[in-house]
Design a protein around this nucleic acid. Structure first.
Lengths: 251, 251
DNA sequence: CGCCGAATTGACACGGTTCAATTGAGGTGG
DNA sequence: CCACCTCAATTGAACCGTGTCAATTCGGCG
């Protein structure tokens, strides 16, 4: 069974990610492909993929964007992280307990069951490289959570936005979903505001400033970053340093 | 070998935490105790426990406080999470790669090697309950990271501070290190500011307001929270909902 | 063509920052 | 045991980044 040629918008975002992290053997590759092609669960925009405090089965996003968010009692709302194709839900701790936050579909989202990936993580001896790869996926996710904390805690609105957009480009590129800084942009300015910890109005103004300065273009559902290198240094963005640990040479 | 009576400030903070999560069998209990009593590594206040981008071995904090932080190029600094006795460093992803952020000792810190705990997590079949307990520890840590994001993104200075202090009380109580809202307080106002994403000046003023209103007392290295229930509702604090998942009854 | 949610704009208020002094408290050496 | 040093805590005043409120415009879709 030969590997199929991949289309620019194919449906194996996780395979792509893992390719960048580690070399899987044939069995592992097949396993991931089987997971990615298994029957999809579909959620329409605005529906809840999982509910805070309720158990749920681990899932892998194949298409569409979602987010994890928390609502405060008075209507304030914070998006904790954005989830794109290739992201896993509920694989952080292995035997994940209840969902720690709501997960909301931002567009139509299709997911597959990721229990088999969880098993591979648990019984790492059977699929050692896959397990290592998934651990890097998890570690990378943590790095992005830390980024979110830095953004909200110590950056100006302008820096926050630049930093987030660069991070998104970085993440999407890994999965073959961004080319030369251009990717689909399904986010409402209100959602973006809830991600960046800003008001919708100020989000709008900051977006305009970046546009005026020629750092980004927005149109028909796509966002394009220009002069990314300049932007990166403005926002102080550094890709996370991830490497498989060599168990022997710790310190 | 009978269980020793524990002093209020004993050196088995992780055992205490795990007791609250899951019931360990004798072997597992002994394993944890062996880890906790193994030779300590000592760090003096201000020294780095691990450096961003460098590999490090997993460690368990036995005494003292530390923090994970990131420095921006221009001197701004954000503390990502505070680490107290009973917290683990470097167990997030199993085969943790490089450190994602610096870890700095805020007081004198003594740690032990936690490799054996990591092994228990990896090969869960040998110590299933311990592994489950550690997974809850990891999940709880994630919940606190999410809390940090909510605080920084959507709360006022006043709420942030109340929320953080309550969370700390909650965490320390689990480990037998806080009684009726009172615990050691080694943090400088500047460090607190770097945690809350505020300036040191405003941190000072907010602290004073809480004091004036009778919500907290600070003196000789201890912090005491008063009228915690009121504070909890002011800050909207809810303890994380953690439960061992029952693999059979997902949805 | 008309509707509705999203994007945009302007004016104003305020939470929090910055800068610059001053006070306080713990530690050290003479 | 006091004088001194240093770092943390505290205070005041001016400034400014963002939030809020309230319209208005735009854009996609039935």
């Amino acid at each position: 069974m030969t590997r199929q040629l991949r289309q620019p918008n194919d449906e194996s975002p996780l395979s792509r990610r893992l390719e960048g992290f580690t070399l899987l053997d044939d069995t592992e590759q097949k396993l991931v492909e089987r997971v990615e092609t298994s029957p999809k669960r579909s959620f329409h925009a605005g529906s809840r993929i999982c509910v805070e405090g309720r158990q749920f089965s681990p899932q892998l996003i194949i298409t569409g964007w979602a987010c994890r968010l928390t609502d405060l009692t008075d209507g304030r709302r914070q998006i904790v992280e954005l989830l794109c194709p290739g992201d896993l839900i509920g694989l952080g701790a292995l035997a994940y307990p209840a969902a720690l936050a709501n997960v909301l579909a931002l567009t139509t989202v299709r997911t597959v069951d990721a229990s088999d990936l969880r098993s591979a993580l648990k019984d790492r001896q059977y699929f050692p490289r896959l397990a290592s790869g998934l651990e890097l996926v998890i570690a990378e996710r943590e790095a992005f959570l830390l980024n979110q904390i830095i953004r909200l805690g110590r950056m100006t609105a302008y820096e926050r936005m630049a930093h987030l957009l660069i991070e998104l480009d970085y993440r999407l590129k890994q999965r073959g979903l961004s080319e030369s800084g251009s990717f689909v942009w399904p986010l409402t300015q209100e959602m973006l505001a809830n991600t960046l910890g800003l008001s919708a109005v100020h989000t709008n103004r900051t977006l305009q400033q970046l546009r005026r300065e020629g750092f980004l273009e927005l149109g028909q559902g796509r966002l394009t970053l220009r002069r990314i290198d300049t932007l990166k240094s403005v926002a102080g963005f550094h890709p996370p340093v991830l490497q498989l640990s060599d168990d022997a040479t710790y310190d």
